[in-house]
Design a protein around this nucleic acid. Sequence first.
DNA 1: CTGCATCCGAGCGGATACTG
DNA 2: CAGTATCCGCTCGGATGCAG
Lengths: 128, 128
Amino acid sequence: MATLETTATVDIGYRSDGPGRLILDQIADKWSMTVLAFLDRPRRFNEILRHLEGVTHRVLTHTLRRLERSGLVARRVLTASPIRVEYSRTPLGESLREPFGHLYAWTVENLDDIRAHQLAYDERLRGQ
Amino acid sequence: MATLETTATVDIGYRSDGPGRLILDQIADKWSMTVLAFLDRPRRFNEILRHLEGVTHRVLTHTLRRLERSGLVARRVLTASPIRVEYSRTPLGESLREPFGHLYAWTVENLDDIRAHQLAYDERLRGQ
DNA sequence: CTGCATCCGAGCGGATACTG
DNA sequence: CAGTATCCGCTCGGATGCAG
């Protein structure tokens, strides 16, 4: 099973209702990957909340729930008063870093190229 | 430069307004990767339309526009009557297949695990 | 054959307030 | 401190009709 072979995989297997969707639906939302990246060690709810500029209480809750539901993040209640809750990456969440890292690296490498294309495209429109 | 090193990249660099967002915003929509996967050779608009079950006229147009804007897909008008338009992957679009392939492969490998977690989670809720 | 405009419903992210 | 509920606006995807 599967060390990569890859490139073919994309062409052969990809459907809008296949595995590709599952992972994209999971991580492509606004905050999931940011949260996952921050959980290099167990972190408490408010700790995460303060670190992520711009996220709200409610949205962070939902993001964590979804990550927990898929087994990428573990939730642990520390009985104390005031109550504390710790979130951490599971091994599964950990293992996602590598493949996502490839995508991230690709983007960094091609960032200028992409932006240039976008600018040129927008310029062409404006010109007409 | 830069064969991966990766894993660190995710943790260090990731912000909700960084490169990660750029690529996810580009490919995480419902059809982009499906289209890109299908363009193993130049294809005409209606050819793509017919191949992708469920996509509508308008949505395919927009998907292609966005891919074109970022330089992942090239658009070529064949002057004939009736008019024909061919879409094809650019080298940039081509190069995206490899990093995306890693993510795709990861999902396939962990699909059962993820689904199991989701089921268990949903079950736990139901039980209460 | 392609492309564009209009309309519409659904879902996500965000603001706010209240509870254990 | 952590979580839940309500409300709301915006964007995306989809349906349809018209035009080069």
